[in-house]
Write a protein that binds this DNA or RNA. Structure first.
Lengths: 234, 234
DNA sequence: CGCAAATTGCGATCACCGTTCGCAATTAAG
DNA sequence: CTTAATTGCGAACGGTGATCGCAATTTGCG
C-alpha cells in the first residue's frame, strides 16, 4: 500500500531560505534573477508550458543540469517567476481610504496579469511567499490598518479580494484574449447544447445581449461589491 | 520563430460532442464512466499527479494505449473527472430566496471539494462544460430568476461566487488538511521573515490570536458579504 | 605560496509522461 | 460470407524533471 497522498517532495518556498551563493567555489555564471527573468520572458512569449528546465537553461546559454545549482526544483523556478512579476507593483504612500487603496492594488494586479497571461492560474493555485509577494500583502493589509477588524479577518479579506481579481482576469483572458480555434469549438458545442432545452435559464442568460467591452467597469463593480459587503469603508 | 503561444492542441470539451461508442465493431470492454470513476478514486487516494494515462489504465485492467479509444487526451480525462464529481450536487426544488439557494449550492460545493481535494485547483483553472457542470450552472442561474439583473451579470455573479468558494476551500485545505512536513518548513520561514521587521502590518495581522476552527461560519460570512454587495436579496 | 575543501558547469542517464502507430482480433452491416 | 469499422494494445518516439559523477574553478587556511 505504501504512502498516502504524495510525499512532502520539498517546499518551493525554501528558495527564500537558502543563500543565493556561498563564499567559496567558482563564481556562478548566472543568477536567480537572470534565470527568473529569462523564464518570465519565455512564459510571456510561448506560454507557461514552454518553461521547462531545458528550455530556460538554453535561454541563458547553460546546460540543463546547471540550473539545479540555482534552483532545487521546477516548482522553485515557478516561485521565482511569480515573485519577479510581483515586483511590478508600485506602492504609493498609504493615503486615502481603505477601499480606494485596495482597489488600486487590485487594478495593478489586473494589469500585471494582463502583461503575463500565465500568472492568474498560478496565483489561484499557489501561495507565493517571496519578498515581493509579501510586500504586496503588507501593502494590502496596511491599507486596512484603520479598519476595525481582527487580524485574521483582514488577511481573509485580502486573500478573497486577490482571488476575485485573479478569477476575473482569467475569465477575461479566456473569453477574448485567447486565439480562436479551440474557443470556436467550445462555442459551437455550447450553442448545440443550449438548444436542447435543458438548461433553460442558462440559455436565456447567455443569449441575452451582453454589454461586452465594459471589463473595466465590471471589474471595479465586482470588487466594490465584495469590499462593500465586507465592511471596508470607501 | 514558428508559432506564437501554444497551438490549438484540441479542446477538451470535445468529449461531450463525440458519441461514446459507434454502432459497429467489437463491444468496448470499458466506458467513459468507469474510466472517470477509476480516475477519481486514484486522485482521491494518491493525488491528482498520480492520475496518469498508464496509472488509470492499470486501474481498470487495460493497456495504456487502450484509454485513447475512450478519451482523446489527458485533458479530456480530467474533464470527465470534473463532471463526474459535479454529479454529486443535489438539487432541491427551487424554493426560498435567491441568496439562500446560492448559499446552499456553495455549501454543497465546499463539501464536494473536501471530498475530492484535487478539485478546487481545477475549478479555479478550467471551465468544465460537461452535463453535470452545466446542470450546476443552470441551478445557480435559475436561483437568480426573480432577481432583476441582466443575464451576463447573473453569470458573472455565479462565476465569482464559485471562484470565491473554490479559493476559500483551497485555503482551508492548504492550512489544516495537508500533511505537516512542507507546511512546517513554510511556517518556519514565515516566522523568520516576519521577525525581520519588514512587513510590520502583516506580522501583526498574522500573530494576532486567530479564531480558528470557525471555517464554517467564516465561509458563510465571506459568501454572504459578496452576495449582499452584489444585490442578491436574502 | 600551495594545498585542501567547497562549489560550479554539465554530459549522460534514469524513470516517467502523453501520445502515435501498426496490427491482430472482434463485431455489425450488406 | 465478405467488407468495413472498431477495439485492445505492445512498442516506440520525443519530451519532461531530476540525479550522478567528474573535470574545472575558486576561496581560505596553513
Amino acid at each position: 500500500m505504501k504512502g498516502g497522498a504524495g510525499l512532502p517532495d520539498h517546499d518551493p518556498t525554501d528558495v527564500w531560505r537558502r543563500p543565493e551563493r556561498s563564499t567559496v567555489g567558482p563564481k556562478p555564471e548566472h543568477s536567480r534573477n537572470g534565470i527568473a527573468t529569462a523564464a518570465v520572458s519565455i512564459a510571456d512569449e510561448e506560454g507557461l508550458t514552454a518553461v521547462s528546465i531545458r528550455r530556460v537553461a538554453a535561454g541563458i546559454g547553460a546546460g540543463a543540469a546547471s540550473l539545479y545549482r540555482y534552483v532545487k526544483s521546477h516548482d522553485e523556478l515557478v516561485e521565482l517567476m511569480m515573485d519577479t512579476v510581483a515586483g511590478e507593483y508600485r506602492y504609493t504612500g498609504g493615503s486615502g481610504h481603505a477601499r480606494g487603496q485596495l482597489l488600486n492594488l487590485a487594478h495593478q494586479g489586473r494589469d500585471i496579469m494582463h502583461r503575463h497571461p500565465w500568472l492568474a492560474p498560478l496565483l489561484l493555485t499557489r501561495p507565493s511567499m517571496g519578498p515581493n509577494s509579501l510586500r504586496y500583502l503588507e501593502a494590502a493589509v496596511s491599507a486596512l490598518a484603520t479598519v476595525d477588524l481582527p487580524g485574521p479577518a483582514k488577511l481573509q479579506t485580502v486573500a478573497m479580494m486577490s482571488a476575485l481579481t485573479s478569477a476575473f482576469v482569467q475569465n477575461e483572458l479566456a473569453s477574448g484574449g485567447g486565439r480562436m480555434g479551440a474557443a470556436a469549438d467550445r462555442v459551437l458545442y455550447l450553442a448545440e447544447t443550449l438548444n436542447t432545452g435543458d438548461y433553460p435559464h442558462l440559455a436565456e442568460a447567455m443569449t441575452e445581449r451582453g454589454e461586452t467591452g465594459h471589463s473595466e467597469e465590471q471589474f471595479a463593480a465586482v470588487l466594490t461589491n465584495y469590499l462593500a459587503g465586507a465592511g471596508i469603508p470607501a
